[in-house]
Write a protein that binds this DNA or RNA. Sequence first.
DNA 1: CGTTCTTTTGATGATGCTCAACTGGGGTGG
DNA 2: CCACCCCAGTTGAGCATCATCAAAAGAACG
Lengths: 249, 249
Amino acid sequence: MAIVLPITTINVSALKASCSACSMHQLCLPMGLGESDIHKLDQIIGRRRKVPKDTLLYRMDDPFTNLYAIRLGHFKTYQVSPSGDQLVTGFQMAGELLGMDAISTDRHHCDAMALEDSEVCEIPFARLEELFGTIPALLHHFHRMMSQEITREQSVMLLLGNMRAEQRFAAFLVNLSSRYAERGYSPAIFQLRMSREEIGNYLGLTIESISRLLSRLKKQGLIRVANREIELLDPIRLRAMAAGTEFCD
Amino acid sequence: MAIVLPITTINVSALKASCSACSMHQLCLPMGLGESDIHKLDQIIGRRRKVPKDTLLYRMDDPFTNLYAIRLGHFKTYQVSPSGDQLVTGFQMAGELLGMDAISTDRHHCDAMALEDSEVCEIPFARLEELFGTIPALLHHFHRMMSQEITREQSVMLLLGNMRAEQRFAAFLVNLSSRYAERGYSPAIFQLRMSREEIGNYLGLTIESISRLLSRLKKQGLIRVANREIELLDPIRLRAMAAGTEFCD
DNA sequence: CGTTCTTTTGATGATGCTCAACTGGGGTGG
DNA sequence: CCACCCCAGTTGAGCATCATCAAAAGAACG
């Protein structure tokens, strides 16, 4: 199915993904690779693929063939619980990798949905594994990314298991803030790409609780909210709140 | 401040780990490898190490050099939350791998403590990565194991985020049961190697809640409990309870 | 056989959920 | 252009679940 085009053409680069030209290559899979290794990686990266808002990149039980690097936009991954409601397992942004949970069974374990019009690079996993043999640095960095996903999930477990609502929400905001900072965006002002309901499904809270929390933090002067735009007015206290050392009565 | 055990011993070969001779090799890292590949793996596996009950295999922030394969016994991994209490991130048993969360930062992200006298095989990660270049099947299976850890944590997130106490506990029992079954032990009768408190710290509940849940399930005739020995009398209903389709009023 | 730690059980209360009503913004069609 | 609708979000009241506090009972260990 992949769109195959000669690599030499000028206009083709619009569809064929290229790590070297990608603004995310410092954060993404090719992080730390040299010129020639990046070029090798470019050879196997499949086409770029647009994923319109609210459409699925893959869904649970789909056979696994590709990892996806987010080039642009935001995604959520979620599982549907036996009782029918969604649990959002993560929100992903540009430079992050989707699909690593599918390696173990060759089938995806969750749905991945675009929260806005987005773009991903297809990475055929079988070819990537071949490439690992010749680029040890790539292999090592891939292991780091998988490991990072494990630790990320561990902190969500910590959050869901130990924290009260207010603490969870503060941790959520602080986490988003630092990820935007990494990407060169403002750590203080950003758009929430997800609905209140999706935030609730991520934090193990109801939409009403999220709404109340927003109101409370706003009243305390910790944040400013206008629809989905949010400004962190007091990152220090928010951080303290996430750490559980400060409360908002 | 890791607990360091002396390496100096009389008979090195007795302590040198050997995958080929290990009863866990069908479940563990060497799963699916041929004779000669297992032999190569044996070359790099470090010494076997005894870990007495209640001692740490590694602790948070220890530098990462080895993965550990559990040969015998049980472990818990836990993080200490900012507010001071433990959150148990997992219970591990023979054939499972410890330390994968440390790859991303070269430091361990949690403590790993033996729940009973246990034994692990040291796997120097740097040498393992070298070996990946020559044994693609080993690499692939390693990726499966990391991916499996990701999906395992996702189901814990689901559990902590969406399930009520009773459901969490049923899911916990059912999970233990199936892991013992995989290892050839009875899925119906087994010892809980962890305290009520540790179960609580895993499920995001208090020790009192765990105790009450045990009493309730016992009264309903779903389980039999005597101290830490537990028998699942009605696995079907327990499974339904874990799935959220049956309740215990 | 006493000491200590773990577990059980009971009473009370707070956090966050449920149900319900209301608000406001954005899009559509008359 | 305005009326209307629809959906996302907000706010309120009451309640259920599980945490907290307290005390007793039971196992484990020297």
